[in-house]
Every structure is written in C-alpha cells, then in structure tokens.
Amino acid sequence: MAKAILVDTTKCTACRACQVACKQWNQLPATVTGFGGTYENPPDFRGSYTRVLFSESVKDGEVRWNFAKTQCMHCTDAACAMVCPTGAIRKSEFGTTVIDAAKCIGCNYCIANCTFGVIYFDRALNRARKCDMCYDRMSNGKTPACAKACLTGCLQFGERSEILAKAQAAVAAAKNRGLAGAQVYGQTEVGGLGWIYVLKDAPAAYRLPAAPEPPVTARFWQALFQPARIVAGLAILFGLWSNRKHSADLAPAPEGTATGAGRAISAGK
C-alpha cells in the first residue's frame, strides 16, 4: 500500500526537530555553515536529506513567514528513476523512491534531472543520496524519523489515502479560519507525491514549484535508454560528463536567485 507523510504547514513551527532527527537517524554528519542572512540552514541539499525552508513575504502590509519541510518528494513519475542507467533507483512496495546503493555508480544523472533538486552526490561513497522515507524504519513497521520527531502534528505518517483525507480536512479548517488561499499540494503533482502538503497560500509563497514536471530530458532518456538497460561503460562515460555538470549546478545559490528548473528548492530567504 502506498504510504505518505502529511506536511500540514498550518502547524509547522519551524522547530527543525525533523531536520535534526533525519541527520541523526541517517547518521549524516553536520556540514559547516554560516549565517547567510536567513534562519534557513544548511543552504542546500549537499550533505542533507531534508531542509526546512523559511519563506518571508509581506502581503497587504502583513508579514508572512511560511515554513515547509522539503526533501525527496517520492514523485510517482520519478525523473530520477527514469534516467538512472543502472536501475539503481526504483519504486518500493510503499510507493516510495529508493536508491540501491550497491547498484549506484555515481553517474549523477538523477541529480541533474531530479524534479525538485533534492538528491546530492556523496563523494566519499561515490553515490547519489537522498531521503528514502526511512525505508529501513518503514519496513520494520516504524514511523519515519522526522515524522516521529515532529511534535506539533505537522508531519503525520500513514496510508496515502488517509493522509489525503486529512489534508483535505485541514485545508477546509484553514479556510474556515480565514486562510482563503489554503490548498493541498502533492495530490496530483508529478503523478502524485509521497508527501502531501497543506499550504496556507500558493506554492510560490513557500518557494515550491507551482507546476512541477520532470525535465524533458528525463523523459527523453527514459524512452531512449532505459528499456535496454544500457551497458555500464556507457553509463560511466555519461556519468563523468554529468558529474561535471552537477558540480557546477550545486554551487550555493546566491540569495533569492533561481538556479534552473531542476533546482526548484534552492537557497533563499
């Protein structure tokens, strides 16, 4: 059965317990950061599976400070899986997107094509890494670490159908409280996401892409190569090229600048 995690941003206090719990469970070392002008840190996904975005805006003279936890969205139409030349990225029995570390050759193509820009390349291990929705915990009947740590009820783990129903109810309640722009995000986007968001406002107010789509290149490569499962040699050659491209792509983005379609969730305020 497909699983999902609710992100009800009307309840997120940006405490970042989720961000730290993820690092702890997955034993990801802390990166060295600096204060870049906002509370948001680390500034990108290099070395991290999840980041809480802090998005500040002023609307009708009122300050808005929106918080959204972001990570691999576990897209149904997963661009990363489409382009993976070795078949290392697959959909699990929970509907989540997982990377088989043994099969990952570090070609970086998933990173270049990820719809949300949330995969990073671990140079030490020479492989692509991202949130796997705590596959190890889930397959042992446990709640993913971040959802377990969240104390406000913002993150809730469950069957996707149940989570969708909760999201609809939360949107209705938010509208009742006068948040006219409240909406569900993730129900149909990219074929349906594994994280269902309740937003108070348009996705842009959270720096989420309004209409996320896998890059055209992903569909192209999928059609061209994947049925044949290309040979490793070709993949490595391809990987070397892509690796270079990736290094350029993930340079920290200056404040408020978008860094291309694949970098939808980027550094900023």
Binding site: R16, Q19, V20, K23, Q24, P29, A30, T31, V32, T33, G34, F35, G36, G37, T38, Y39, N41, P42, E255, K269
Partner: peptide, 28 residues
C-alpha cells in the same frame, strides 16, 4: 552539537529594512 550548530551557526542581529536602508546595511 554539530547538527544544531549547522542549523544556527553564527551570531546575527535582526533589523528592519527601514533601518538597514538608513544604515546602508544588507543581509549577510
């Protein structure tokens, strides 16, 4: 604790855009 230091690494001072403009200071 490195994971917490990563999230809040440095001393900062918060100020309004009006004061920043008056003082010629920008974020960061």
């Amino acid at each position: 604790c490195p994971w917490l230091a990563e999230a809040m690494p440095e001393m900062f001072v918060e100020l309004s855009p009006q004061l920043a403009q008056q003082k010629g200071i920008s974020s960061g």
